[in-house]
Design a protein around this nucleic acid. Structure first.
Length: 165
DNA sequence: AACAGGATGCAA
DNA sequence: TGCATCCTGTTT
């Protein structure tokens, strides 16, 4: 199996591509990741980390392999995996899953709703007992790249990745 | 096509 | 203190 630790040290866009096809599990629920987005720091105006650490975004500056779960629009949870070395901001937003029976879970809010993820999971290390489990696919998955969804700045970066299927 | 819902962070 | 924001279900 490919080394997840190595992948999470790479730039977020590279990691976001390679995370396609990975199996994501939380408690009894699981699915294959089919859509991701990359967010970085000072060079990424769309990122929560763009202007430096805040109480919410400081997790993005920490070591890789931790969860970043935030509440958006006061309603929906969004799940990210922190990437890049400690001190460098980076995260991969999980935007879509495919279940074993073929059902598609599309949208970051729906991913969290399906898996039962809330801010209670924020800042936990993945692949530990009480957190998410993430298992990479053996080979990279063919994909398309597009601008990220729901942002007004940084739209020139093609940092959204969707499995070709 | 528009909007409610309402946490977070920044500008004013 | 106001307003934009990494969204989605419901109502025009």
């Amino acid at each position: 199996m490919p080394a997840l630790e190595d992948l999470l040290l790479k730039p977020a866009p590279e990691g976001a591509k390679r995370l396609l096809g990975a199996t994501l599990s939380f408690q009894e629920r699981h699915g294959q990741i089919i859509e991701t987005e990359a967010y970085r720091g000072a060079d990424d105006p769309a990122s929560h980390a763009h202007k430096g650490p805040t109480p919410r975004s400081s997790i993005m500056f920490g070591p890789p392999g931790f969860t970043y779960v935030y509440l958006i629009y006061g309603m929906h949870h969004c799940l990210n995996i922190v990437t890049e070395p400690e001190g460098t901001a980076g995260a991969i937003l999980i935007r879509g899953l495919q279940l074993e029976d073929g059902t598609l879970i599309q949208g970051p809010g729906r991913v969290c709703s399906y898996l039962g993820i809330t801010r209670a999971l924020n800042g936990t290390q993945i692949n530990t007992q009480k957190s998410l489990s993430l298992e990479l696919s053996n080979t990279p998955v063919p994909h398309t790249s597009t601008p990220r969804i729901g942002i007004k700045k940084g739209t020139g970066k093609l940092w959204r990745y969707v499995s070709a299927d």
